[in-house]
Nucleic acid binder design. Sequence first.
DNA 1: TGAATTCCTTGACATTTATCAAGAGTTTCG
DNA 2: CGAAACTCTTGATAAATGTCAAGGAATTCA
Lengths: 189, 189
Amino acid sequence: MKTQLRQHIIERLGRIPDNLDTVLASFTERKTKLNELLLQEGEICRHVYFIARGCLQVFVIGKNGNESTREFYFENNWTTDIFGFQNQLPSREYIKCVEPCRLLQVSFDQFQAMAQAIPEFVQVYKQILEVSYNNAVYRVNTFTSMDALERINWLYENQPQILTRLSSKLAASYLGISPETFTRLKRKL
Amino acid sequence: MKTQLRQHIIERLGRIPDNLDTVLASFTERKTKLNELLLQEGEICRHVYFIARGCLQVFVIGKNGNESTREFYFENNWTTDIFGFQNQLPSREYIKCVEPCRLLQVSFDQFQAMAQAIPEFVQVYKQILEVSYNNAVYRVNTFTSMDALERINWLYENQPQILTRLSSKLAASYLGISPETFTRLKRKL
DNA sequence: TGAATTCCTTGACATTTATCAAGAGTTTCG
DNA sequence: CGAAACTCTTGATAAATGTCAAGGAATTCA
């Protein structure tokens, strides 16, 4: 697993950083079961996760009890409740393993230590933050400016994994529609 | 105007930074008319704006020609197409002055120079990025998990300025509903 | 493997929200 | 200031989406 993270870091930076082994040593391996919860609403997020294998769902539960997915993360991506993690404040979201996963996790203290010790780390973090922000912005815009069918088309073109790899129920929760509506709209494509 | 920016920076950092005058010198004052466009879709965003007075609307135009607002920014806030600005890529959004504004703007080159020269600047940028990301995340979650009436209530409690200071049409475009629906739902509050 | 659970689809119906049209009110700007 | 443009509201109607129920298919896990 750590080989994969090593590879990921080298690709991101475009070269082999000095303290790479120190960085890798900070991470702990973790295997999870299907549907295991990594974070619940109200809980403080204690880790950043690197996904070596599997898929994580970040979602909220609305008044009616429905799960609404903000994002799915697959292999070679990072997941955490960024804001809650950085400020060690309770999360408003849940993080769930929607596949059995192999993760590499790093704690808050270790994360801070790395940020202190390794300037490049801060740079990578900034990059990730910018891309995450950009995705969230894009997602707000698809919700305000597209109807359900347009959003499905958008998903086909931009995130086909969500449609091919995950259940329809999960895809529907990402699209912000009911599973029934999703079934019906699929015929109109 | 620069007094206001000086004040803002000091408050954000919690103290007076060394290079404050250098920073302030990088900004250019700019007055805008009502409805002036600062950025159009397809254009590359060349500036970061600090709002000394007024309000900026960041929005997209959907297939049907409707404006969908992602965010409104008021006094003492920063606005730009962050991702497009950092990577100097075409924007997918528009930025419009929905009030006559007094802005302080800084160009891409000046922004990079500041980031190079002033470590604290990077720190402040990271803070702003985290808060912006958090807002965008919150906004995605309100869209996926709340109906129109719940979103209006949420707005009353969290962003009353949008309801009191701006037109109903603009508020509706932020809520992702038509002005007619907005009129009707207001009676149900 | 096999029982239990969850998921997907379909139908019928209810609810929410959009669209179009029109008139009164308000704002903008030369 | 006053004409032009835009905004807000209301009604009528249409379109989109949600909810509930039920059966068959697929998946999970002991």
